[in-house]
Amino acid sequence: MSATRLRPLAEPVISGALLILAITWVGTDGYRQDLAVLTVTYGLIGLGLYSHFIMGDSLSIAYNAYAAIGGYALGLVATRTGWPLLVSLPLGIVAAVLISVLLGLATRRLNGFYLAAVTLLFSEAFQAWLIDADGVTGGAEGVILTRSISVFGAELGRDQIVVIALVLMWLIALLLSRLRRSPFGVALRAKAQASVAVEAAGVPVTALTLISLSIGAAIGSLAGAVFTTANLSILPESIPVSVAFLAVFIPFLGGRSSPWGVVIGALLVTELTFNLNFFQGSGTLLFAVAVVAVLIFAPEGLIGLARDLTGRLVGAVNRGGRDER
C-alpha cells in the first residue's frame, strides 16, 4: 500500500498544519494567548507524564516540583544574575532531571499507587519548602521577572513567546510519538506489562525507568519555564500540587494511544476550565465528570473514539486486523 509509505510523513505534516492554524488563530489576541499558554503548560506536563506513566507504567507525579524548578530557574536567573535568561532552561532541566532521578532511586521498589502516594507527598513537601525557603524562592510572594528571554539581543515579546510555546509543544509531542515507536519506546512499553521478561532480555530495567522519568521531568521543567516566561512571575501556588492529577487525567481524556491524545486532552481541559477560576470553579467539576464519563464510555479516549468511528466507516470497505494500542 502506498499509504504506508506516506505514513511517516503524514504525522509531522498534518500536525504541523494544525499547528500553523493554531498559531494563526491565536494571533495577537490577548485572551487567546492566555488560552494557548495554559494549554501548553498543561500539555507539556501531560506529555512529561506520558513518557513514563502511559508508556512505562511509572505513576510518579511530582510535576508541580519539576514545573516549579523550571519556573524558578528562570525567575532566579532573571533577578539574581546578569546571565542571559536562556541559560536558565538547561539549568532548570538539569535540576529537574536530578531531582527526578534521586526521587526515582528512592522509590525504585515502589509501583502503582504506592509510588503515586510518595511522589504526591514529595510534591506537597516541595511546595511547603518553596514557601519556607523565602531566602531562595521569595517565599509566598514568589519571584517577579524583571526581564524577558532575549535572543540575539532582542527581548522576546508575549506574541513571540506564545508562538514559541506552541511550537515547543508540537515538537515535543512529535518527538515523543517517534520515541514511542522506536525500539526504546517499545521496550519501555513492554516493561510496563512484562518487566521480568524485559529485564531477562538484557535491558537494565531500573535505568530504563530512570531515563523515562528524566525525560518527563525535563519536559515538566519546560512547562514551568513557558508558564513563567508568559506571565513574568512565579509563585508557589502558580502550579498547584493537584496539577499532577490533571496530567494523569489528560491522556485518559484525549487518548493514551499517542502523545497527541495529551495535546487534545490539554486543549479540552483549558477549554473547560479557563473562564471558571480553575481549581475553585465548576470547570473542575465538569472536567472531573467528563473524565469519569470518558473512562467509562470511551476507554481509549477521544482519539480511540475517533478511530472507532473512522474504523467503522473504513471497515465497511476494508476489514483489517486490530491496530496496536
Partner: peptide
C-alpha cells in the same frame, strides 16, 4: 488502572460538588 483513575476523578468531582 482505568477504573481506579476514574475513582480519583470521582474524588475531584465529589470535592467540587460539595463546594457547589
Amino acid at each position: 488502572l482505568p477504573m481506579v483513575i476514574a475513582l480519583v476523578a470521582t474524588l475531584f468531582a465529589l470535592e467540587q460538588i460539595s463546594g457547589v
